[in-house]
Every structure is written in structure tokens, then in C-alpha cells.
Amino acid sequence: MATKVTLKEIAQEVGLSPSAVSLVLNDRPCRISDENRRRIKEVAAQKRYVPNQIARSLVMQQSRTLGLIVPNIMSRFFSSFARNLEVRCRERGYALFIMNSDGKTENDADLVRLLINRGADGIFLVAAEEVSPDPLLMEQLEAGIVPVVMVDRSIENAPGDKVRFDSELGGYLATKHLLDEGHRRVACVVNTASHTGRDRLAGCRRAFAEAGAPFGEDLVFESDYYIADGCRAAERIVASDATAIFASSDNIALGVLKCLYAHGKRVPRDYSLVSYDNSAADALFEPALTAIEQDVEELADHALELLLARVEAKDGTPGPFEERVLPPRLVRNASVSRP
């Protein structure tokens, strides 16, 4: 196994001090000629020198690492977001640690503490629980030891920057599309234990109110953001008189489809279906799902911009906390037809 090349070895070859070599390789200001700079970098490249990030962190007081906590990395939406965010972090010279809370708010608190102890410069947090977060998590956020940006889900009254999509608008657009196609008995499968789910349900109600049609409270079905939960909710839909379904996440939609197919039902022949996230667009499914799209690339751009504004602030005071609300959009495919 090859040994790592040290600054001292490079310094001996170029005939300069290790401190001079360190300044050049870290792009720090120093009075070293262009020729010596060129020579140092040439030798470092030849010897395949890899900087000691731990030592650099001690000097710079930055680890150049960030953390991302998500509730369910198996979710297409969160895995796609994590991938896009990791690429952007790497392009900016940061490593991203991706951690999974399994949808448990006490795990959020443990993972935040772990990332702080590991020296993360900042944290992206997709909270497992928006309505009743773990008290220890709230203490950590209020302590402000490292900057935290809440992504997709917002904990009310928690300090920190926030970026999310307008879930109420998304629920409205999905339901309005089904109403415009003539449906009046629309099953809404939502997670009312979360602010996002409640907002999407509020959007459903707004669409019915604007259409002057009665909203069927008996067609609101509770589901967490997992395929199995969506499948269980669909068992009740099959026993109802619904003609259309609004599934408030792609995982819920996939669970609904699994149940419908088990009952010999087909989309859009028997039920029209609008999903949410549009992260299952590449799934091998016919017909392609009409869905509310949340652009993960746009979300990653805003999240990283907000966090780096804190991490890289020169005077340590980048300004008041900011909340950004992004608009989702309806992507029409083939899963909706007239009743």
C-alpha cells in the first residue's frame, strides 16, 4: 500500500520550507515567485499529493463538510434531491454527509448532534416531524451552533433559513385539474400529521370551493409518505364511490396503484389519478402519471445558496433568517380522463 506524500517531502524536492509549500497549495497569500509556485504545484501533481483535510480544518476552522438529514432516503423525491444537492456541494468544494432519520423526530435530534460533533459546517434538515418536533431538536436549533436550513418541511417557530414548495398551491392545481375534467368525487390521500399534507388538503378544499362543488370529507384518507400506507388507504377508496384520486406523494401514488391493480382496477379506465412530486416520471408504468412537479434542482440550488451564505459569511452576520416558497407546477400525462 502506497504511503501518502507529505508537505515536507515536496518542500525537500523544491528546496523551500514546508510552510511555503502549504501556503501555495492552499492558495493562501504569500511572497513566492510565480516560478516557485509553478514548481510546487508541478511536484505535488507528480507525486499525487492529497491534502490532509483534518489538518486544514484545524487551521481554517472549517471542515468543508455539510450534512443532509432526510426522513426516507428510499423516497424517489428525497433520493433525487440528495443526489442533486451532493453534486452541487462537491462543485463548491464541500463533502456532503447524507443521513436517514427513518421519519423519527428523535433521530433528527441525534443526527444533528452527530453532525455537529463531526465538525459539519452546516446542516440541511428535512424534518421528520413538523408539528411536534423533538424538544432536544428544538434546543439544538435554538442554540445555533451551526447554520441549519430547513428544506421542504418547516418547523413552526424554529430559527433558521427555510426553503419549500407551495404545498397549498400544489394541492389546488391537482384537484382543479380533476374538477376541470368533470370529476366531483375525488379521494384525497394525504398525511394530515404534517404541515405539507395539511396544506395540500387545504388546496383541495380551495379548488372545490372555487368550483362551487361540495367537498367530500368522507373521501379524505390518511396516509404516511410510504408505499404500504398508500396501499392501505386505497383499500378504503375501492369501497367508496370515488372516480378520481389525488395522491399527495409519489410513494402514496405507487401504493394506491399497487392496491388498485390487485383489485383488477386500472388507471385511468376506472380511476383518474394525480400524483405529487413527479419523481416517478421515469418509472416503468403505463400510463405515465399526471403529477404536481417539485423541481429538485431548483430546491437544491436555493438550499445550498441559503446555507453557504451563513457558512461563508465573512463577518459572521449574514442577515435575518429567510424563507423561500417555490411554485410547483402541474405536469399533464395520461392518468386522467373524464368520468
Rank of each mutant, 00 (worst) to 15 (best):
V59I: 09
Q61K: 14
A20M: 14
T6K: 06
I227V: 11
G119E: 08
A2E: 06
L25R: 12
S132T: 14
D315F: 09
A109C: 15
A309I: 05
G93C: 03
A45H: 06
I73S: 02
V186C: 04
R39C: 10
E142W: 06
A313C: 14
R200M: 03
L96I: 03
A11W: 06
D27I: 01
A213F: 10
R113H: 13
K258A: 10
L173A: 03
R205E: 12
K258V: 00
L219Q: 10
I145R: 08
L169Q: 08
K47Q: 02
R31H: 15
R332Q: 15
N278L: 01
G203Q: 08
E129R: 09
P214W: 01
A202N: 06
L284H: 07
V43E: 01
D282M: 11
T317D: 15
E217R: 05
K162L: 04
A247R: 00
G93A: 01
P133R: 11
V256S: 05
V331F: 01
A128D: 03
D102L: 15
F221R: 09
H177N: 07
E156K: 13
L115W: 08
S275N: 05
T317F: 05
L257T: 01
V70H: 02
A45K: 12
S240E: 10
L25V: 14
L169N: 03
I69K: 06
A280G: 07
S80R: 04
D224T: 13
C204S: 10
P328K: 09
